[in-house]
Design a protein around this nucleic acid. Structure first.
Lengths: 199, 199
DNA sequence: AAGTGATTTAACCAAATGGTTGAGGCAAAG
DNA sequence: CTTTGCCTCAACCATTTGGTTAAATCACTT
């Protein structure tokens, strides 16, 4: 059986949790060690420093931040709207499992803008490419691709980023807010259809 | 002449700047003192502790976070879409002047959700109230008010929150991104019109 | 000019925090 | 059994950081 979790993995899991909750400067090495159920010295044994450990966690999370279905968008025999729907669905599904990911990535980059450059990631670039083709061939309206993507991605991410404040503003229970999130897909696709086709 | 800036005010200004840049746990009292051009002890003389100082800054910024035009939405003789336009314009204008405000508020609340409760603020509540009336009287389509507000507010905030990552994704210069922000108003109102009226 | 209360400063302190060390444990190889 | 190389730990260290203190200075009143 190779199913036992290595110490290294236990540390990474704990580090992810703590860094996502507290951010880099709010996180404590002791806290990570406690959570991993090991001695603090082991953190440094496996990952030299807090910076190094954080960088690993950040890179790992950054990859998750970009939906992995972009490749699938090319093969399938779908209309553009259907592809949008797939994109939104995949993104929302991932976010349900990683609700704290967006604010972690964005606030980290906010405080350290170079990090955006250090990792080569183009969020939604494939959708934009497809969109330009659709426009050229006259199948959808002429819409600013950047504005559109910003809105589409924002529609997925923002409800997670702003959850605490909107829970209160709308006066919703956690269950009700989850319901709102579940219905987000429909609203996003409705937006896309209204803007791109106009029906 | 009462135009001279008090020490208290100098501290507040410096504290706002540093807390907005670094967040609570990333900010250093020494850094704030340096920036205010005073001794570190004075911070504690005027504002007992880091927590107290932060709370003041946070409350102050939290008020800014909610557009102050909500009252104006009632008096004026405008269509609902025009009111939306006003709301978006006012919000975007404020954000241009305070581009770091959204991520500060949202990441702070993320790490300390009780703060959302400690301050009584309903972001966009007035729009929702008006929207319900419009729907009841059949002047706009039946649209989920929460979904709509989440999108509308997100359309204003998200471009500021995600600026670093989208600058890179879209490969835009700062000037080009500012241009994108300037055109945001039109796109947001276009969304509202498409969803609420369908034209 | 002397007194009074608010303001400012340098020096200091205790706790927290990231990081290190050296000794020991433990499993596989010889 | 002993060696070897990886793993684990308690104790320790240096620095940073929020916070304090006591003396000095300033502004204003009497």
């Amino acid at each position: 059986m190779e199913s036992e979790i290595t110490t290294e993995q236990k540390i990474m899991d704990a580090a992810e949790h703590v860094f996502l909750d507290e951010g880099f400067s709010g996180a404590r090495m002791q806290h990570i060690a406690d959570r991993a159920g090991i001695n603090k010295a082991m953190l440094h044994y496996y990952f030299r420093s807090k910076d190094k450990l954080f960088e690993l966690v950040f890179r790992h999370k950054m990859k998750q931040f970009v939906p992995q279905i972009e490749a699938a968008l090319n093969e399938a025999n779908m209309t553009f709207i259907e592809k949008i729907d797939r994109f939104v669905l995949a993104y929302l599904t991932m976010l349900q499992k990683n609700p704290r990911l967006p604010i972690f990535i964005l606030s980290t980059i906010h405080r350290n803008p170079e990090l955006a450059n250090s990792i080569d990631i183009k969020l939604g670039a494939e959708i934009i490419r497809l969109m330009e083709i659709e426009i050229k061939e006259g199948r959808i309206k002429k819409v600013d691709t950047h504005q559109f993507m910003l809105t589409l991605v924002g529609m997925c991410l923002f409800p997670f980023i702003a959850r605490p404040i909107f829970s209160k503003t709308f006066d919703l229970t956690p269950k009700q807010y989850d319901q709102l999130l579940a219905e987000r897909r429909v609203h996003a696709v409705q937006y896309a259809r209204a803007i791109l086709i106009g029906e």
